[in-house]
Computed example of a mutant assay.
Amino acid sequence: MKIIVISDTHLETDSIPTYLAELFEKYDMIIHAGDFTSTGFYKALEATGKLKAVYGNSDNIEVKNILPETLVFEVEGVKIGVVHRGALSIMDTDPIRYKALEMGVDILVFGHIHQPIIEKSDVLLICPGSPTKPRMSDPSAVELIIDNGTISTEIIEISGQSCSYIDFSRKLSEE
Rank of each mutant, 00 (worst) to 15 (best):
Met1Ser: 13
Met1Asn: 11
Ile4Trp: 08
Ile4Ala: 06
Ile6Leu: 11
Ser7Gly: 02
Thr9Glu: 06
Leu11Tyr: 11
Glu12Trp: 09
Asp14His: 00
Pro17Ser: 08
Pro17Met: 07
Leu20Lys: 00
Ala21Lys: 08
Ala21Ile: 01
Phe24Met: 03
Lys26Asn: 13
Tyr27Leu: 06
Tyr27His: 11
Ile30Phe: 05
His32Phe: 07
His32Trp: 06
Asp35Trp: 07
Asp35Pro: 07
Phe36Cys: 02
Phe36Val: 04
Gly40Thr: 03
Tyr42Asn: 01
Ala44Asn: 03
Ala47Asn: 10
Leu51Ile: 00
Val54Ile: 03
Gly56Asn: 06
Gly56Leu: 07
Asp59Thr: 05
Ile61His: 00
Val63Gly: 01
Lys64Asp: 05
Leu67Gly: 04
Glu69Thr: 13
Glu69Ala: 13
Thr70Lys: 15
Glu76His: 09
Gly77Asp: 11
Gly77Trp: 09
Gly77Ile: 09
Lys79Asp: 08
Ile80Ala: 10
Gly81Pro: 04
Val83Gly: 09
Val83Asn: 10
Arg85Lys: 10
Ala87Ser: 15
Ala87Asn: 14
Ser89Trp: 05
Met91Arg: 13
Asp92Met: 09
Ala100Lys: 11
Val105Pro: 00
Ile107Cys: 08
His112Asn: 14
His112Glu: 14
Ile113Met: 00
Pro116Leu: 06
Ser121Asp: 08
Leu124Phe: 01
Leu124Met: 12
Leu124Arg: 07
Leu124Thr: 11
Ile126Glu: 02
Cys127Ile: 00
Gly129Lys: 07
Pro131Lys: 07
Pro131Val: 06
Pro131Ile: 01
Pro134Ile: 09
Ser140Asn: 11
Ser140Arg: 12
Ser140Trp: 11
Val142Gly: 10
Glu143Leu: 12
Glu143Ile: 11
Ile145Gln: 12
Asn148Val: 08
Thr150Trp: 01
Thr150Asp: 01
Ser152Gln: 14
Thr153Ser: 12
Glu154Lys: 15
Glu157Phe: 00
Ser159Met: 07
Cys163Ile: 04
Tyr165Phe: 07
Arg170Asp: 02
Lys171Glu: 07
Leu172Arg: 10
Ser173Trp: 12
Glu175Thr: 12
